[in-house]
């Protein structure tokens, strides 16, 4: 039995370890990439998509460690407290580093100061989708139905406090009447309820809604990006439909505060080079994401602005866990 455990360890590490000339000092050992979500989700997927070519370029193995919990803050805290030697990295994201700081007053890290933010990996919009039989194809129709029905419209999301939920709050404020928010445990069950017609609408992140939009099991109502998304040019934005709502989910690579600037820049360079390859561009487009192009300093600034942007929205939503 112990053989099995040992073999698993070897398998996990030996997969990526091609012999490439290494930079002086770093990386000197396996890099641990902490994904603050359970395996199988969008964050996990993005981490795996990027870590494989990154391991090849850096010439060391990268092992993915899933540390889910508390809206991605458990895994983030673990990285904030790790040694800043460049061998422990984190998939930072909108939940743990954008919305979380306002959502959890007892949060034990500062989303900006306690991290070395390295590179933005991808941004993806959210999209309002509707069951095709609901007869809602635009925000105007949505607004009209919302006003006409006695109890207001129902809208599903992957969970309370998510960026998708925040968009429901913003939309309700814009319409002057709260939309009835129906949270689920994850996007899968929520999408099932929309396809089954139990809930007419859903606010979902584009990567998770993409295949359902393509298959026509749901119709797109509005896209939360500033411009129309190249993969779904038929779905108009909120702005085009007269509502100034823009909100994009994002994932990036970060490490503990105090990492050497040379290491940060090295990783940033490699990540951007990977994201620029045709293969990754195609993969991201299919998933509904836009590859990031920011420098480390720009990404740090990006995170700071996100924290400031979401604070008032979270307050308005009333979704404060404590």
């Amino acid at each position: 039995m112990s053989n099995v455990v040992a073999r698993r360890g070897v398998l996990a590490t030996s997969v990526f370890a091609p012999h490439v000339l290494r930079a002086q000092g770093w990386p000197s050992q396996t890099i641990r990439l902490v994904v603050p979500y359970a395996p199988g989700g969008t964050t996990d997927l993005m981490a795996r998509l990027v870590s494989q070519p990154l391991a090849e370029r850096l010439g060391v193995a990268i092992t993915i460690e899933n540390r889910p919990g508390a809206g991605a803050t458990v895994g983030s805290l673990a990285v904030a407290q790790a040694a800043p030697d460049g061998h422990t990295l984190l998939m930072s994201n909108i939940a743990s580093h954008g919305i979380g700081p306002s959502l959890y007053p007892n949060i034990r890290y500062d989303a900006v100061r306690d991290f070395s933010h390295i590179a933005l990996i991808t941004e993806n919009p959210s999209v309002f989708v509707a069951n095709p039989r609901a007869g809602i194809t635009s925000l105007a129709e949505l607004a009209q139905r919302h006003r006409a029905s006695s109890g207001g419209l129902d809208m599903a999301t992957s969970g309370a406090g998510s960026s998708n939920h925040m968009l429901v709050v913003l939309m309700g404020r814009a319409l002057g009447r709260d939309i009835n928010h129906i949270p689920f445990r994850g996007a899968g069950p929520a999408m099932t309820a929309v396809i089954a017609g139990q809930v007419p609408l859903m606010s979902d992140s584009l990567p998770s809604a993409a295949s359902h939009l393509r298959a026509g099991s749901v119709v797109g109502v509005a896209m939360s990006s500033a411009q129309r998304h190249p993969a779904f040019p038929a779905i108009p934005t909120f702005r085009e439909q007269g509502h100034d709502i823009v909100g994009t989910g994002w994932f990036g690579l970060s490490g503990p505060a105090g990492m050497a600037a040379s290491v940060v820049d090295h990783i940033n360079r490699e990540v951007r080079a990977i994201l620029a390859t045709a293969e990754q561009q195609a993969r991201f487009a299919e998933l509904g994401g836009t590859p990031g192009r920011l420098s480390a300093a720009e990404y740090t600034d990006y995170v700071r602005r996100e924290v400031e942007y979401w604070a008032p929205v979270v307050r308005a939503s009333g979704a404060q866990p404590d």
Binding site: A38, P39, G40, G41, D44, L45, R48, L49, G188, P189, M191, T192, I195, A210, S211, H212, R214, A215, S217, R283, E286, L287
Partner: peptide, 23 residues
């Protein structure tokens, strides 16, 4: 739509392979 954590991982594996699971 994955009905449990294992199925969610299968979806991940398919997407990494360049296949969009769906209807």
């Amino acid at each position: 739509i994955p009905s449990n954590a294992v199925m969610a991982l299968m979806v991940g594996a398919l997407i990494i392979q360049g296949i969009q699971p769906g209807p």
